[in-house]
Design a binder for these strands. Structure first.
Length: 225
DNA sequence: AAGAGCAACAACCGCCTTGAT
DNA sequence: TATCAAGGCGGTTGTTGCTCT
């Protein structure tokens, strides 16, 4: 295994290797070379094209950015549904998921998941734990009030821990509907919201099919560890 | 107007797998 | 069968641009 590592490193250290963002010139060289010679062995391609990049770097740049069929722009709600469904099914198998989204790359999907969706899962967890604390405090107050006012017998005392165990999953209320963020009027902990004015969010909340999301999000949140 | 904070995304790194010899 | 080179994959980091104060 160490040999393999060494071989990879050596193959990229034979020549001076450039790192960091690709320049337009480098992009053009790579595009022109592949247009004329096709994709091939990436290390030799990098050398033959005169690029001071590793083969891996060239491959990544081509696959994730320069390839003509790479689809740019925001992830659509439909694509989002597919991502969540497949992630619930396969986990972090980004390349496998990407195969079901033509024009999208594994890197793009991975980034999308980590920056948008995972954030909402964390918020959901936070929301859940905050509510648990709030509920436990409330219940303890009730218990204390009951104890002090009516000297209730031990058998009538509600166990706060037992209450906490019956708590609903994130964003689902006890009636089975969504908990609503009263600032935005949209379900809590669901896909990217436009609470910030960030222009990159493409979700149309008015037309979004929230009911279709319920099953997928339930799957996601309960299937993931 | 400036800078701090944050989100999004491009690119790199290390490990694993695969195919050739 | 063992070894090596290259590709593939997932995790992580660095950069950039936008928003807010």
């Amino acid at each position: 295994m160490d040999n393999k590592k060494a071989s990879n490193i050596n193959s990229s250290q034979d020549v001076e290797v450039r790192k960091g963002p690709w320049t337009m010139e480098e992009d053009l060289i790579l595009i022109n070379y592949i247009a004329n010679h096709g994709e091939g062995v990436w290390n030799s391609l990098a050398k033959a094209a005169g690029l001071k990049r590793t083969g891996k770097s060239c491959r990544l740049r081509w696959l994730n950015y320069l390839r003509p069929d790479v689809r740019r722009g925001n992830i659509t709600p439909e694509e989002q549904l597919i991502i969540m469904e497949l992630h619930a099914k396969w986990g972090n198998r980004w390349s496998k998921i990407a195969k079901h989204l033509p024009g999208r790359t594994d890197n793009e999907i991975k980034n999308y998941w980590r920056t948008r969706i995972q954030k909402h899962i964390r918020q959901a967890d936070q929301h859940q734990s905050n509510n648990m604390i709030h509920r436990q405090n409330s219940e303890m107050m009730i218990i204390n009030n009951q104890a002090s006012t009516s000297q209730a017998s031990a058998c009538n005392t509600v166990d706060a821990m037992e209450i906490s165990n019956t708590y609903s999953p994130p964003f689902i209320s006890h009636q089975g509907s969504y908990n609503i963020d009263h600032q935005t009027n949209y379900p809590l902990a669901l896909p990217p919201t436009t609470t910030s004015t960030t222009s990159s969010s493409n979700i149309d909340h008015q037309n979004y099919n929230w009911s279709a999301m319920e099953d997928l999000w339930s799957m996601q949140l309960f299937n993931s560890d």
